[in-house]
Design a protein around this nucleic acid. Structure first.
Lengths: 360, 360
DNA sequence: TTGTAAGCGTTATCAC
DNA sequence: GTGATAACGCTTACAA
């Protein structure tokens, strides 16, 4: 029955109007349900549209209305499971609300990121979801100024700018990780930090320091290693850490890739986890349980972040004057085999599960 | 200096023309480098554009030229590492060529996929990259007919339709996997197949059968288990397989998730890999080496697939009459610890590495 | 070499 | 209630 864009020229509003015997403005109103018009008129327009398989041109509509029903999504690396998950959540939510998603990958490069934002603005997106790689608040404001479309930041954020801010409970998570280790008698604890250009890396490192300080634990010179976010970088840092003497009895990796790298380093160096070194990780990769040993980690749903960020953005796009939203997503500690008692710390005891934040 | 879209109204071609003291058609020509025009005229237009920070409106341009410089990307599940990797490769290549990417996730649902294609056509994308979940050739032709933009299929493909077809060497890969197991004395080999709506699942299953047949090996009733592509489904099938008696001595999982699921099943049932059961996998997850035991698997680069598919599409978009491209991407066998000699098959011997296809 | 004018497919502002 | 008509911002015959 319906649709058959097949033949040649695309069916236009004018065609529908002609067929229904009305003007195109009337046809437009009928299809958009705007204004008052005779029920029978609207009926015949709708019928004509159906018969012709009319699909309004988003292009023309956007040109006229200055709104594109498109949201931009900018992340450091879309092939990272974390960002891919966030994207999926955001995409689902946005599409449900009638928005399309324009994806941009900044490749962890500030200039590329800025260019991506420019492109999105040029294309008149109605809103932006951004995880930034070290943009300053100034450059951000410069690029995505006040008059521009709303921008919700997530994961890699800037404080106080933009239309909203969705982050993980980084400090709470680090506190839980350190607490778990401390309870198991560890005091020589090292940390593998991520690229400090990103807010999440900074918050996690600070969270680590606070958690250590709160317990009166020292962090010796060299026990804080700043990496980029790659597995290779985690491996390299791990190798150096294992060479130190005295060596740490536990390592906190601030991401799954860093943890994986450290695990690889342990394998190479013949260091047995957790007997000789406990390893805990901020992210819980979906195969965490199948690693050897299974990884003790903080768990959360990337998709959930995407969902929340997208909802916040949708609100903003609909009415620009709703207040900015700041959300902290809680994380949950999952204790598995990669962490255990500190060597020489006597006693057994496995810490139980622990929830950070308000749960969900 | 330049650009300052900041204030209010967006600067338009007319503004540039006015400032340069020419008509807007001349300005357009100058900026697009079309037709002959006095060097000084072109100069003053360019200068004016620069001074005003002019950014042409892609919307208006597209409406007029009927080309959007946008490519659609449709996959079953963007949060799968495989598709995320392909996306990344495609995105890089497309952006380099000046195209943007509109992402759609079909959620492994035929109807959603069809709707996504419709949406893309409505938005007048210039081309489509599609991994289909069980579309028939007919429905595909119906949706993306001859007059429509070029569509390159990858991974989940349809034979002979569309503007091109990029696939993995599924049969060759399965041959390599079975050969490896056979060399190690296995003859009771089971397979975990993926959802048979997708071409890759079918090809892998057929490849398995051929490889077995070629060696005169039987596949007993129940040794072929069809799953969907999830880890949970692999786990369930694995559990059933382990209950069989006599039990298989080796399992070929046709994807990483399936292999992970099977590995989990072995853990649960206390079956030791590879002593009691050898496990090999089609995909090589990036953490394959860190699993216990490390996974014997076929390796390849998802990004490479994206790159190749995107290049093929770009060619097609530029000149619709170039012949369709069909590419098979080779896969490489990586032997690790999850596969070993069949129980009771005597002798040692680890098969060496083996490359399928032309390598690279 | 440059300008005029038409048109891409809508929606919005008027009159009627 | 409905219909002209003018944008939206650009490209492209066709004239000059």
């Amino acid at each position: 029955m319906a649709s058959s864009r097949s033949v040649n020229r695309r069916v236009t509003l004018a065609d529908v109007a002609r067929r229904a015997g009305v003007s195109s403005s009337t046809a437009s109103r009928a299809l958009n349900g705007v204004g008052e018009l005779a029920p029978e008129t609207r009926g015949s327009v709708l019928r004509a549209a159906l018969e012709l398989g009319f699909q309004p041109s988003p292009l023309a509509r956007s040109l006229r209305t200055r709104t594109t029903y498109t949201a931009g999504f900018v992340v450091p690396d879309i092939s990272s499971p974390f960002y891919a998950g966030v994207l999926k959540g955001a995409q689902l939510t946005l599409e449900e609300a009638g928005y399309r998603v324009l994806l941009m990958d900044s490749e962890r490069d500030r200039e590329v990121e800025l260019a991506a934002l420019e492109t999105l603005l040029t294309h008149q997106v109605d809103g932006i979801l951004l995880s930034t790689t070290g943009l300053t608040a100034e450059r951000f404001e410069e690029a995505v100024g006040a008059s521009d479309p709303p921008c919700v930041l997530f994961d890699g954020v800037l404080y106080g700018v933009g239309a909203g801010c969705i982050t993980l409970d980084n400090r709470g998570g680090m506190e839980a990780l350190v607490e778990h280790l401390a309870e198991n008698g560890h005091s020589r604890i090292a940390v593998l930090a991520g690229a400090l250009a990103e807010s999440s890396a900074i918050e996690r490192l600070e969270g680590f320091r606070c958690a250590m300080g709160r317990r009166g634990l020292e962090v010796p010179e060299g026990f804080e290693r700043v990496c980029d976010w790659t597995q290779a970088s985690g491996r390299a840092a791990g190798v150096e850490l294992l060479r130190d003497s005295p060596r740490p009895t536990a390592v906190v990796a601030t991401s799954d890739d860093l943890a994986l790298g450290c695990l690889a380093a342990c394998r190479e160096q013949g260091v047995v986890v957790p007997e000789e070194l406990s390893l805990v990780s901020f992210d819980d990769p979906y195969f965490g349980e199948l690693l050897e040993p299974p990884l003790t980690a903080l768990s959360y749903q990337p998709r959930e972040i995407g969902r929340i960020a997208a909802s916040a953005l949708i609100e903003q796009m609909r009415s620009p004057d709703v207040p900015r939203r700041e959300v902290r997503v809680p994380v949950t500690l999952i204790v598995r085999g990669s962490s255990g008692r500190a060597p020489g710390a006597g006693g057994a005891g496995e810490a139980g599960r622990k929830v950070s934040g308000s749960g969900r």
